[in-house]
Write a protein that binds this DNA or RNA. Structure first.
Ligand code: FES
Ligand code: FES
Lengths: 148, 148
DNA sequence: TTATAAAAGGACAACAAGGTCTTTATATAA
DNA sequence: TTATATAAAGACCTTGTTGTCCTTTTATAA
């Protein structure tokens, strides 16, 4: 569904949010480890997010990535848009050049329902809302095992 | 959502079904033109479908692709499975190694609903049901314009 | 029986996504 | 002011998907 880079972005943002709530600023190395993603690639993802003001960054000693007040309450939709665009929310499920109510493909009615449902999730869920679930222990950020 | 090759496969199958209903057997060239896909690539897709008995084929003059009685009523799920596997129906939307009710990611509840909804569509819709919509004029197979 | 029209198969080319590495810029601490 | 820790940037590599081309097989018609 989502591109791998988008998944990394979302997981990284949730982790950064959790760290921020503990008044910690965190860097690439720690983030990559936590979200179980390759370090250099995570750096690129964070660079993209920073360039688009989803998060802010500080270079040098004690630097790292963090949310500002204005970059807070970011919706999943905004993150997806920045990472891979929003074509996923407009695409025809049957592969036609565009999706059209007036000239529907045979999957249109049902596919559109699903696609719009996903759009609704992307609009209603935020980095905040996801992070809250994790901090309340209702959800997990990774599958790091305690064994080994 | 679906791989391009899967989309080509579904569109091709619908067209073959429509042709079969008119007692016509059709070949790669015509299929590729109708579904607006590259000819050589369409040939590969049809080869895969034939190998997995989704459709049957005949070589030589007057040959082409067609459904048999046993390959009829194929669900979208079966086509997807053959073309790209079924990982799409099991994947964690947040990118974790696996999806788990017991150990959910923060997107799990909502994402699972969407994913399962898509699975339900894939199970309930068939090449038959899609083709019927097209033959009844309720849906279109392509976006070929009448202008030009 | 031969020519022809088709699918099957295999090799490979093009492109996009994912991923790595090295250098540069910048902030902080000693 | 210098050493160090960090992000930014750019060049590159790897892999998977999409797409092409050429040869082989097989059925039909002449
Ligand atoms: S026209 Fe295909 S999904 Fe809308
Ligand atoms: S655990 Fe992520 S979708 Fe189920």
């Amino acid at each position: 569904m989502l591109a791998k880079s988008t998944e990394y972005a979302i997981r990284a943002l949730v982790f950064i949010q959790l760290q921020n709530w503990q008044d910690k600023r965190t860097g690439v190395v720690e983030i990559a480890k936590e979200i179980e993603a390759p370090e250099a690639f995570t750096a690129k993802v964070l660079q993209t997010l920073t360039k688009h003001r989803i998060i802010a960054s500080m270079k040098g000693r004690g630097g790292g990535f963090f949310f500002t007040e204005t970059s807070d309450q970011m919706t999943l939709f905004q993150v997806i848009q920045v990472m891979e665009g929003e074509s996923i929310f407009h695409k025809c499920g049957f592969g036609l050049k565009n999706c059209s109510d007036a000239n529907p493909c045979p999957m249109h009615d049902k596919y559109r329902t699903i696609r719009d449902g996903f759009f609704a999730i992307a609009q209603s869920e935020t980095i905040h809302s996801l992070s809250r679930k994790v901090s309340e222990g209702k959800a997990v950020l990774n599958r790091v095992s305690f064994l080994n």
